[in-house]
Simulated scan of single mutants.
Amino acid sequence: MNLHVENKQLCVGDVRIVGVASASVFLIGDTEVISLSSMFDTPPESVIIAPFVPLPAEG
C-alpha cells in the first residue's frame, strides 16, 4: 500500500470516542512510520470476538 500525505495546518477542537476496538490506534500529529503486526498463539475455538466496548459516560 502506498500512501501520499501532504502536511498542512492541523487544528483539533474536541474529540469524542464512544468505543474502542480490541486493537486500535488513535493518533493526532506527525509520525514518520507506523508499523502494525498481529499474532495469535491461541487456538481459534478459544478466541471470543465481540462488538465494540462502550466507554463510561462522563458526568
Rank of each mutant, 00 (worst) to 15 (best):
G19T: 08
D41C: 11
C11K: 09
N2V: 09
G59R: 08
D41N: 14
P51L: 09
V25N: 08
V53G: 02
F26P: 00
P44G: 10
A50W: 01
G19Q: 12
V18N: 03
S35Y: 05
D14T: 15
A21G: 07
F52E: 04
S35L: 08
G13V: 04
E32P: 00
S22H: 04
P43Q: 12
L36R: 07
S35R: 05
R16V: 15
F52D: 05
V53Y: 03
L10A: 12
D30G: 06
M1N: 10
R16A: 15
V20H: 02
N2C: 04
E6F: 02
F40T: 14
I34R: 03
V33E: 04
S35E: 13
I17E: 02
I49C: 02
L27S: 07
V33N: 02
T42A: 12
I28G: 00
D30R: 07
V5Q: 03
V33H: 00
D30W: 08
G59W: 03
F40A: 11
V20S: 12
F52Q: 03
S37D: 15
P44S: 14
N7S: 15
I34V: 15
N2R: 05
D30Y: 11
L10I: 12
L55K: 08
S38E: 14
L55Y: 05
D41R: 12
K8R: 10
G59F: 06
L3V: 13
V5R: 01
S24V: 11
